[in-house]
């Protein structure tokens, strides 16, 4: 509504179109025709490649079969949702999923921002470039290989960490039957894998900050730390918040690749490591029920949708410009 106040309809424009709601709308369309044209390809793309297949969510309420297809298959009510809650693990996995995502968001954002800020403050050009390139390497290491490496670090026999412990005169730790260690391990690997990719986003945001603000801050006698906290961080807040909101939009979705490759089918660790996606994978691996997997996906999506709408509203109350939509 604010919008309308700040941009009052231009009353002076000739009344070609009859006044009233439609008329005002029409006039706005004409005034923004170039911008609308610019956005049109993306809109068409989204309708064709995202909204059209999105209709497949009805599968969550269907007893799917090949012959009748998605739309022709008989309805199945909410039957497809039941197995998830009947498994007795629903509470645990929802809790794990959310807690892991919260930890990932916090740790990830802090390390990525810190790296980005430090990288811009470091004097040596070569050091900046080389260290930044090095941080990008984990992005290319697939979770499958991360799983292999984790095994090399934590396993009993050739685990690097256990070799170290033994060399230092301690007893071996059997990490793969010690569930409590895993939240730390998983958060570490997520941080490690995302730091290069994530920090680039903040780096680009920092590059976009007008350098004259820095000069002004320096003239005002700010030290570097003050400058970071009062100039740099506030300037990249829009990026931080957008990324935060997008992460919140996935808060009920677990990164299957990561959990599956690091933990696998190790039931001993599940109390601390099982997430919604790994549970439904295990439940459906032999029956491969299309409807049930669609149901779990829809359940996650709805929860995410509610959460992100609430989060967005909070952000909007703080500053409408930062909001996602």
């Amino acid at each position: 509504m604010k919008q309308h106040l700040s941009n009052p309809p231009e009353a002076s424009v000739q009344k070609k179109i009859p006044s009233g709601k439609l008329g005002r709308f029409g006039k706005r369309v004409i005034r923004n025709k170039i911008l609308l044209l610019m956005i049109l390809p993306a809109v068409i793309y989204t309708i064709v490649f995202a909204y059209y297949p999105m209709t497949g969510v009805v599968m969550a309420f269907k007893k799917y079969n090949y012959r009748d297809g998605i739309w022709g298959s008989p309805w199945n009510g909410i039957e497809n949702f039941r197995f998830f809650f009947k498994s007795g693990q629903a509470g645990t996995v929802i809790r794990n999923t959310v807690l892991y995502n919260v930890a990932f968001i916090l740790v990830g954002t802090v390390t990525q921002m810190a790296v980005a800020i430090f990288l811009t403050e470091i004097r040596s050009k070569h050091f900046r470039k080389i260290s930044q390139s090095m941080m990008f390497l984990p992005y290319f290491i697939s979770w499958v290989i991360v799983g292999v490496m984790a095994f090399n670090i934590f396993s009993d026999d050739f685990g690097f960490l256990n070799k170290l412990l033994v060399a230092m005169g301690f007893k071996k730790i059997s990490f793969y039957i010690t569930p409590k260690a895993w939240p730390f391990i998983l958060v570490f690997f997520e941080m490690w894998k995302g730091v290069g990719y994530g920090s680039v986003m903040y780096l680009a945001a920092i590059m976009g900050v007008d350098t004259s603000i820095y000069e002004a801050a320096a003239l005002d006698g700010c030290n570097v730390f003050q400058r970071i906290f009062y100039v740099t961080i506030p300037s990249i807040m829009p990026t931080v918040i957008i990324l935060f909101l997008m992460s919140v939009g996935r808060i009920f979705k677990g990164n299957f690749d990561m959990f599956y490759n690091l933990v696998g089918t190790n039931g001993n660790l599940f109390n601390y490591t099982d997430v919604i996606d790994t549970l439904s994978f295990r439940a459906l691996i032999s029956s491969k029920d299309f409807g049930m997997s669609a149901a779990v996906g829809l359940f996650q999506s709805v929860l995410c949708f509610i959460t992100v709408v609430l989060a967005n509203r909070l952000v909007k109350a703080y500053d409408p410009d930062y909001a996602l939509f």
Binding site: Y51, M54, G56, V57, M59, S293, S301, L324
Partner: peptide, 12 residues
């Protein structure tokens, strides 16, 4: 943004 939340899955 809405399209990142909901997906119809692989088949469609």
């Amino acid at each position: 943004y809405f399209t990142t939340l909901f997906s119809g899955g692989l088949v469609p």
